[in-house]
Amino acid sequence: MESSLIPFSTPLPSRRFLAIGAHALSDKMLELIAKLSLMQRVTVLDCGNRSNMYSVAKLIRPYTADPVRVMCNIRLSRAFTCYQVLAMLQAVAANPPKEPLVVLDLLATFLDEDVELKDAQRLLNHSLSLLTQLSALAPVVISVRPIPLIAHQRAVLLELLKSNVDVCWEEPLALQTAQQTQMPLFG
C-alpha cells in the first residue's frame, strides 16, 4: 500500500481533515481505511454508498495473516438520506469513538433536490457541529466530491464544510478529469 496515494499521512492527529476529489476519492479513502484497520479500530460513516469492503479486504490481504480479524476492526454504517446522516452522527456522538472516524462522501445526500436547500443547510450545520465535537477525541477524515454542475446552487454546502475543517486537501483538476472519462455506448 503506497502511502503517497493517501492525501493524509498516518498516524493522524485529532483534527478535522477534508479531502475533495472525483468520486469522493473512494479509492484513496478505502486505502486509508485499510491502512488504519491494520493498526487499530476505525469507524466509517458511509454517506454515498462508497464502502466497498471487498476492495479493503484485497488491500489488507498482503499485510496480515488474519484478514477477518482486521476486517472486524472496521465498524461502519451507511446513510442514504441527509436526515439519516444527522441521525447517524447523533448516534456516534452519543458513544464517541476514540479511534479515527472516516466519513465517506459526506455531501452526497445533501444534494438531493427533494430536500430544500435551507433544510440541507440546517442539517449540515448540525452535522458539522457533531463532527467538530467528535474530532476533539479522535481524528475525523471526511471525503467529498466536487459539487456537480447540476447541483451548482448547492455549492454553498461545500463552502460551509470547508470552513468547518482544519485541513483541506483538493485533488488536482487533471486527476479528476482523468478519472471521469466515460466509455460511450455508441460512437
Binding site: 469492503m53 476486517m71 472486524c72 465498524r75 454504517s77 446513510a79 444527522l86 441521525a87 447517524m88
Partner: peptide, 19 residues
C-alpha cells in the same frame, strides 16, 4: 414524515457477508 432510521453498525466483514 422523514425517515431517520439508520443502519445498525456492522463490521467490514459483516458487510461483505450481508451486502
Amino acid at each position: 414524515y422523514q425517515k431517520r432510521q439508520v443502519e445498525e453498525f456492522k463490521s467490514g466483514m459483516q458487510l461483505i457477508q450481508s451486502d
